[in-house]
Amino acid sequence: MALIECRSLTKAYKRGSGTITPLHELDLDVESGDFLALMGPSGSGKTTLLNLIAGIDRPTGGELCIDGADIATLSRSRLADWRSENIGYIFQLYNLVPVLTAYENVELPLLLHRMPGRERHERVRTALRLVGIADRHDHYPRQLSGGQEQRVAIARAIVTDPRIIVADEPTGDLDAESATAIMQLLTRLNRELNKTLIMVTHDAKCAGYARRALHLEKGRLVEPGRIGSEAEQEAAA
């Protein structure tokens, strides 16, 4: 059984007389350890799909099973708990809390878990080291560059050790150099830590780091299949 199973997954909004259907009876399986790039034109439903998988939005039809659990049936507060256990979300605009330091931002999701202070401290340290930003732990977001902010955001997404990491255009606001560094970091999370990654991107170069890419158009998947992985080419070179 796949880690993520979407069956006829549908999201529709009623707008007056008509309905908008950003996601139309979508079938998708994502295996544990996969790194999936979601591509497609603006408005094709990429963010919608990502939000459903991340449990911050609810489908209006179909089934969505993650790790055997039908998350559409969870109550709002159960779903919040489920997110803190299972999902790490990386945003295009980082969404760090401006009044908290890098360290405190990374610590934030751990406050939802019962654990001794010492362990929490260790986890935050490890996550910050992993994203290569340990020396900036006491800086506030405004004192960091965009690339550094995104690293902190990645540390925040992985610190609870979730199985699934979703990223919505994680390099969308970064220059090419920072983008490459972030993509290499995400690739490491997938290869070395065996995280299941789903990433929305407009950039074919970024999609190249994924194990596979899917194209969405008007809420439906088109021509699914493997594409040449840039990371593999890099490794081969």
Binding site: D81, W82, R83, S84, Y89, F91, L108, P109
Partner: peptide, 15 residues
């Protein structure tokens, strides 16, 4: 509002 949304996405309840 966006920050409050992000906090919820981390798993903090609205209450």
């Amino acid at each position: 509002v966006r920050e409050l949304g992000a906090l919820q996405s981390l798993g903090f309840r609205r209450a």
